[in-house]
Computed example of a mutant assay.
Amino acid sequence: MKVARSKRLETVLKDPQASKQLREFLASATIGNSSQEIQTTDSKGKSIGYFAKLIPIDGKEK
């Protein structure tokens, strides 16, 4: 599995509650069947939404 890094993901990883939600999603998700929106705030208090979804890397489900 690969994770695409972004500023939104970095913000999620800094928030303990949001990173816990992301870990739980990664532990239980299956390719193409589930997704989850994770909400947190950045250091300036701005609301940030991160949409986590597993997708196949080669374009084929196995």
Rank of each mutant, 00 (worst) to 15 (best):
G32S: 07
S19Y: 04
P56R: 08
P56L: 01
T41Y: 06
A27W: 13
L54D: 00
Y50V: 00
A29N: 10
I31E: 15
S47F: 03
I57F: 02
K62A: 07
G32E: 10
K53S: 05
G59W: 00
I48Y: 04
K53Y: 05
K14Q: 15
F25N: 06
S47D: 09
A52H: 04
S43F: 07
Q36L: 15
Q36D: 01
G32H: 14
S35H: 14
D42T: 11
T30I: 02
Q17I: 09
Q39K: 14
T30D: 12
G49K: 13
D42V: 06
D15L: 06
V3D: 10
F25I: 04
N33C: 09
I48G: 00
A18Q: 08
E10S: 14
K2S: 10
R8H: 13
L54V: 06
G59L: 01
K53R: 13
E37D: 06
M1Q: 12
P16Q: 10
K44T: 13
M1V: 12
K7L: 14
N33V: 13
R23V: 04
S34N: 15
K20H: 09
L26V: 11
V12K: 06
Q39L: 15
T11D: 08
L54M: 03
L22R: 05
Q21I: 03
G32A: 05
R5C: 11
Q36W: 11
P56G: 08
Q21Y: 01
I38P: 01
L9V: 06
G45Y: 00
P56Y: 02
S34Q: 15
Y50M: 01
G45Q: 01
G32T: 08
A29P: 09
V3M: 08
M1F: 03
A52L: 01
I38R: 02
L9Y: 04
T11E: 13
F51N: 09
